[in-house]
Design a protein around this nucleic acid. Structure first.
Lengths: 138, 138
DNA sequence: TACTAAAATGCAACAATGTTACAAAAATGA
DNA sequence: TCATTTTTGTAACATTGTTGCATTTTAGTA
């Protein structure tokens, strides 16, 4: 789907900054950190604006947060860009390659249920696998 | 086990800073972030020194990192303070309460195997559950 | 097309977090 | 007690993320 339509569908005004950022994600296909997006879009988009763009994309269900080596955050396109309902879960695992640094969504892998102590209520779960991707494994 | 012995066992010199920090973890029993430890030990321990203490504890297998709401890191005592082998995994899930902010280790819950694409090698995994703990659930 | 209200942007300033270099101090073993 | 090695404190700096505010841009409407 074209970036313009995606923005509209998610109730986001069309701006050049947002289009640039969205194109990065559509083209790159992997999770990107704020810094990585910044490098891709260059100084066409202000640093603060970029934070706000990523934030708005997340609020509107266009991106979801991905834990990155337990220290920082990346963003990835949501699974269901086809439906506008953004009370979604994106409840899948992520894999980060420790060699090339790429982070990919393991869409097929729903995070399994984990038993918790009595009385605990689980609302969300984040699962990050680390290792080597097929490109870096040899 | 006494803090002094723990340090010795893990090849860490006994210093007042390290003892203070270690006592925090032994007494508190939950995962602590750098800032939380800093609050607990006060200005008896310098900020930079505290970073280094946490780092040395992790290197020597006394603490392990715990992902904290995908943005920052906490530290928790390792499962096996009894053996000195620190090529350990601490391969269990963690639970963070979104109300009180406490993070606990779910020692019993080994992280299940997640299928990955062909050619990927998984070396480590981090699983963080978010929700309400038994104290905050009502 | 021109106008208006609402939203988004850029900028400056700031806060929090984390790192490095280096000299001074403390801990260990002989 | 001494010598060596490790640890510490300090300062300086880099990175990351946030807030306030004036300006610009967008989208809808006349």
């Amino acid at each position: 789907m074209q970036p313009e339509r995606l923005l509209k569908k998610h109730n986001l005004r069309k701006t050049s900054g947002r289009l640039s950022v969205l194109r990065c994600f559509l083209e790159y296909g992997k999770a990107l950190s704020h810094g990585e997006v910044q490098d891709l879009v260059g100084k066409k988009v202000d640093r603060v604006t970029l934070y706000r763009i990523l934030q708005s994309f997340e609020e509107k269900g266009l991106l979801h947060k991905v834990p990155d080596d337990q220290v920082s955050v990346k963003y990835a396109l949501c699974d269901h860009l086809h439906n506008v309902d953004h009370a979604h879960s994106d409840n899948h695992a992520h894999f980060k390659c420790n060699s090339c640094g790429d982070t990919v969504c393991l869409e097929e892998s729903a995070i399994p249920n984990i038993p918790t102590p009595k009385g605990f209520r689980v609302n969300e779960s984040f699962l990050l696998l680390g290792g080597l991707c097929d490109q870096c494994v040899r």
